[in-house]
């Protein structure tokens, strides 16, 4: 089972904007470790001679023609917004 250090838990939590307590870190490290260990079983499969693919099905070029269809009304679009102003979503101030 991978160690919490290998998981780079702090890094992943930071990217996900999660502030974890020491207790949570320990718990999630164990859970994520189990998941990784499970997935790592795939490494045992011999894939020599097999082309990597992002999809299991040989289906390509699934598209639609460029014909606009009606979208949402402003009211519906903002329907789930916890806060709105001037027909826009209000979010905490972000400056890159």
């Amino acid at each position: 089972m991978p160690k919490p250090d290998d998981l780079r838990l702090d890094h992943v939590a930071n990217l996900a904007r999660l502030a974890l307590t020491a207790e949570e870190k320990e718990r999630f490290a164990a859970q994520l470790g189990d998941v990784l260990a499970y997935v790592q079983q795939l490494n045992e499969v011999d894939v020599s001679g097999i082309e990597p693919t992002a999809h299991a099905f040989p289906v390509v070029n699934v598209w639609a023609e460029d014909v606009p269809e009606p979208g949402l009304s402003v009211e519906d679009a903002l329907g789930n917004a916890p806060e709105k102003r001037d027909n826009m979503f209000v979010v905490p101030k972000v400056v890159e």
Binding site: A77, D86, N87
Partner: peptide, 13 residues
């Protein structure tokens, strides 16, 4: 597009 107001930002999609 983000529009930055005084204390918050406003999002137009």
């Amino acid at each position: 597009k983000l529009n930055h107001a005084e204390a918050v930002s406003l999002v137009d999609f």
